[in-house]
C-alpha cells in the first residue's frame, strides 16, 4: 500500500473505538448530561468482555457480560447523579477511578497478575472484505479490509441516527436535552430518558472497549489510554450530529495516524502529540462559547 492508503486505513482503525464511544456519548449529550465516565465505561467493558470471552468461549455471552457490566456502572452514575442529585462531572470521574481500580484488582484476583493478561487461545478477529482494500484508490482503505467492529460501528451509527431522528423515543430523548419542561408538560419524565441515555452510553462504550481488548487478544491496564476523553471531544467537534461524529472521529483518526507516521520522520515528542486532543477541544470549546455569546448578545 502507498502512504496515503495506509494512512487512511490506519485512520479508520483508530477512529472505530472513538466513533463507537462517541455515538454512545451522543445519547447522553443530547439529553443534556455531560458523560465524563465514558473512559471508565470503556475500560470496564474492555476488561469484562475479553475476560468473559476467555472463560465462556461464547461470543454472545461475552458481549452480554461485557456490555452488561458497563451498563451497570452507567446505571450507578446515572442514579447517583439523577436521584441523589450529585454533580455529573464528579460522578463521571468517580466512575473512571472506579473502573481503573476494579479492573486491576479483579485482574490480580483472577489471574494473579496486575499487568498484561494475554489470551493467546482467543481467535484473531476476522478481517472482512479484504480483497477490496487495494482495489479502489481512496475508498478502498476507507471501506474494506477492517474488522467486524469497524462495520459494526458504522451500522450502529446509522441505527443511532434512525433512533434519534426517526423514532418517537429519539424525539423525546432530544426534547429532554433541548427543553426538559416540554416532557414534564405532557407527563413524561426527563430523568427517565437521561437514565436510559446513560445505559445506552454504557452499552456503546463497552463495545468500544471490547474492540480494543478483543482485537488484541489481551487486556492491558489502562488500555483505553484517554480514548474516552477524545470521544467526548469528538461529540463536541461533531456538533452533536451523527454525520458530524463520523467526520470528527475520522479527523482524529487521520491526525493520529499522521502523527504516528510523522514520528518516524521528525521525532515529535509523544507527550505533545498526546496533548493535542485536549488543546484541540479547548480551542473548539472557546470558539463555540464566543459564537454562543455573540449570538445571545444579538438576541
Amino acid at each position: 500500500m502507498d502512504t496515503v492508503s495506509s494512512l487512511i486505513f490506519s485512520a479508520v482503525t483508530i477512529m472505530t473505538p472513538l466513533l463507537l464511544a462517541a455515538t454512545g456519548g451522543l445519547y447522553t449529550e443530547l439529553t443534556g448530561m455531560l458523560n465524563i465516565g465514558i473512559e471508565g465505561l470503556m475500560l470496564l467493558g474492555a476488561f469484562s468482555s475479553v475476560v468473559s470471552l476467555h472463560f465462556t468461549h461464547n461470543i454472545v455471552l461475552a458481549i452480554l457480560i461485557g456490555t452488561g457490566s458497563s451498563m451497570l456502572l452507567a446505571a450507578v452514575i446515572a442514579s447517583i447523579t439523577l436521584y441523589l442529585k450529585a454533580n455529573v462531572f464528579i460522578t463521571g470521574l468517580a466512575a473512571n477511578l472506579f473502573a481503573s481500580g476494579i479492573t486491576t484488582v479483579l485482574s490480580f484476583h483472577i489471574f494473579a497478575n496486575k499487568g498484561v493478561v494475554t489470551f493467546p487461545e482467543l481467535p484473531q478477529m476476522p478481517v472482512l472484505f479484504e480483497r477490496g482494500t487495494e482495489a479502489v484508490p481512496v475508498l478502498g482503505p476507507l471501506l474494506f479490509g477492517h474488522t467486524f467492529f469497524t462495520y459494526l460501528s458504522f451500522i450502529l451509527l446509522f441505527l443511532s441516527y434512525v433512533v434519534l431522528y426517526r423514532t418517537p423515543f429519539g424525539f423525546r430523548l432530544r426534547a429532554t436535552g433541548l427543553y426538559p419542561k416540554s416532557l414534564i408538560s405532557v407527563g413524561l419524565s426527563p430523568k427517565r430518558y437521561q437514565f436510559i441515555a446513560f445505559l445506552i452510553s454504557g452499552f456503546f462504550s463497552a463495545v468500544a472497549g471490547a474492540m480494543l481488548s478483543v482485537n488484541l487478544g489481551a487486556f492491558v491496564p489502562n488500555i483505553t489510554a484517554g480514548k474516552g476523553w477524545v470521544a467526548l471531544v469528538v461529540i463536541f467537534l461533531g456538533q452533536k450530529r451523527p454525520v458530524g461524529l463520523l467526520i470528527a472521529s475520522f479527523i482524529f483518526g487521520i491526525s493520529e495516524a499522521f502523527s504516528n507516521y510523522a514520528q518516524g520522520i521528525w521525532h515529535i515528542p509523544s507527550d505533545f502529540i498526546l496533548a493535542i486532543p485536549y488543546i484541540f477541544t479547548l480551542v473548539a470549546i472557546v470558539f463555540y462559547s464566543i459564537y454562543d455569546y455573540n449570538r445571545q448578545k444579538v438576541e
Binding site: P221, A225, A257, Q263
Partner: peptide, 30 residues
Amino acid sequence: FDANKASDLASSMIDGGVDIFAVIAGGAAQ
C-alpha cells in the same frame, strides 16, 4: 500500556519499509 498505539506505530513503520522489529514496550508489545 497503549498496545493499540504500538500496533498503529508498527503498522505505519511497515508501510514505511520496515520488515523487522525490536520491541521493548512492556504490555504494549502485544
